[in-house]
Design a protein around this nucleic acid. Structure first.
Length: 449
RNA sequence: GGGCCGUUAGCUCAAUUGGCAGAGCAGGGGACUCUUAAUCCCAAGGUUGAAGGUUCGAUUCCUUCACGGCCCA
């Protein structure tokens, strides 16, 4: 059986009106039929493209001709045929014989407009894929993005690993988890919100360069850039730091953009990207200097009525300033460095600036795509950070980190200086394909019942 | 969570100052041996998202609910 694109590729230059003796077996879904009585044209779709078929009474005989014309649009058929170029210059296959491979009992989506109903496109993605070529192309591009990411890391000596999805404690991100229960163990478990802490234990174990590409789960609202389960890449590299990690991300995303043919006159992932600091970006866009007011009360006063500040702690206010004033402005790929320690419980203290960490977040198209830092590898400091998080939790911050003693013990074993990074793959696919909603790039997004 | 908008045939969409709900595609019957959004003829297809209310009469107006979209939080 030959893919349609291959049939087309082998006969692209035929003159209109010429016959060949090239015989192919193709298979696909019947998309359209144009009857002509004793002769008919049909269109056949496979994953690689569309090909016109010609059915002729004098070739097939009355019985097979009638059976072929009796097929429904949407039926899956196998075709044996001979290539020719129609008088109008449409490459076609004259049907010598055919087999019905599967019947379609339900009507296909409208053949000119495709499936437009957004709800049906997401709930019945198979119909979207049958009816809308855009959708097929998008998910092929998504696969290319993931392949390009893997290839880049594999070529640089990273080892792909799998760590637990079901975790006794969650950690590695500021988020609320999903909780589930293990019957035999008689205990609750959490679906991971990040892979960070386990991956760093592998760095302690000496794997030196590891990455994991998989689903994380966060029990939060659904929006154009949030799905409760989403695909995340995290990598950790021993003897690296936040700066070499930024260089690696820049190189990797630029190579992904080239691999999928990202082409947008307004946004380019070609290196180098803009690099600035979080405090500088907030100051430029909002006029508020977060480094001048290091407690909630005085920062709230500096913010005034620009944002609601009631009941927000200092790190939450900084995060609010970032997402309200800065994030939407960052269309071109941009690194923001030097995050405050309160927002960064796993990042190493900045080598020069008190109260900051060696961390960046990377933004493009007004979204956070990536988050990285020089990893905190001092177990005593890590303990203190967990204790600070516990105080935030007591203060009502339900996204604060729970204390993870197993992780601290791993650090006590000695973790090399390490650079680590997380990259949101769904958002990366959105950026590469110009889609504005995560639901467009996730095959089966979360929907209400 | 709040605001606005949407939900009509299998699909894509019309329509109504509140008065028999209408096309194209798909599906059925027929004509047609180079069509490609094929064309032509015939017939069929509806609990107008759900439940209430107002009215002689509601798909249209009102209320609640469901699902979806956009914006805000």
């Amino acid at each position: 059986m030959t893919p349609i694109a291959e049939v087309r590729g082998a006969h692209a230059d035929l003159e209109p009106g010429t016959d060949t003796e090239s015989i192919y077996r193709v298979a696909g879904r019947l998309h359209a039929r144009r009857g002509q009585g004793k002769m008919a044209f049909l269109d056949l779709d496979d994953r690689s493209g569309r090909l016109q078929l010609q059915a002729k009474l004098d070739v097939l005989g009355p019985e097979r001709m009638a059976r072929l014309l009796d097929l429904d649009l949407g039926d899956l058929v196998g075709i044996d045929g001979t290539v020719f170029m129609s008088r109008r210059g449409e490459l076609s296959l004259r049907v010598d014989d055919f087999t019905v491979l599967a019947k379609s009992l339900r009507p296909p989506p409208e053949k000119h407009h495709g499936l437009q109903d957004v709800e049906q496109r997401f709930r019945r993605r198979e119909l979207d894929l049958i009816g809308n070529e855009d959708a097929r192309a998008l998910f092929l591009t998504r696969a290319k993005v993931i392949t390009a990411v893997r290839r880049a890391l594999d070529e640089d000596g990273f080892v792909e690993v799998e760590t637990p999805v079901l975790q006794p404690l969650y950690g590695g991100a500021m988020a609320r988890p999903f909780t589930t229960h293990h019957n035999a163990l008689g205990r609750d478990l959490y679906l991971r919100i990040a892979t960070e802490l386990y991956l760093k234990r592998l760095i302690v174990g000496g794997l030196e360069r590891v990455y994991e590409l998989g689903k994380d789960f966060r029990n939060e609202g659904v929006s154009f850039k949030h799905n409760p389960e989403f695909t995340m890449l995290e990598w950790y590299e021993a003897y690296a730091d936040v700066h070499s990690t930024a260089d690696r991300l820049e190189k990797l995303v630029a190579s992904v953009a080239r691999a999928v043919g990202h082409d947008d006159p307004d946004v380019s992932f070609t290196e180098p990207w803009r690099r600035t600091t979080l405090a500088q970006a907030i100051l430029e866009e909002s006029g508020v200097d977060i480094l001048a007011d290091r407690d909630a009360e005085s920062l709230a006063a500096a913010i005034g009525d620009k944002l609601p500040t009631e009941g927000r702690n200092w790190p939450q206010l900084v995060d609010d300033l970032l997402s309200k004033f800065v994030e939407p402005k960052l269309q071109q790929p941009t690194f923001l460095f030097d995050y405050p320690v309160e927002l960064s419980p796993f990042a190493k203290a900045h080598r020069e600036h008190e109260g900051l960490t060696e961390r960046f977040e990377m933004f493009a198209y007004g979204m956070e795509l990536s988050n990285a830092f020089t990893e905190l590898n001092d177990p005593d400091v890590q303990r203190e950070r967990f204790e600070a998080q516990a105080r935030l939790a007591t203060g009502g911050d339900d996204e604060a980190q729970p204390y993870d003693e197993a992780f601290v013990q791993a650090l006590e074993q000695g973790m090399p200086p390490t650079g680590g990074l997380g990259l949101g793959i769904d958002r990366l696919v959105m950026a590469m394909t110009g889609r504005r909603s995560i639901r467009e790039v996730v095959l089966f997004p979360a929907m209400r019942d």
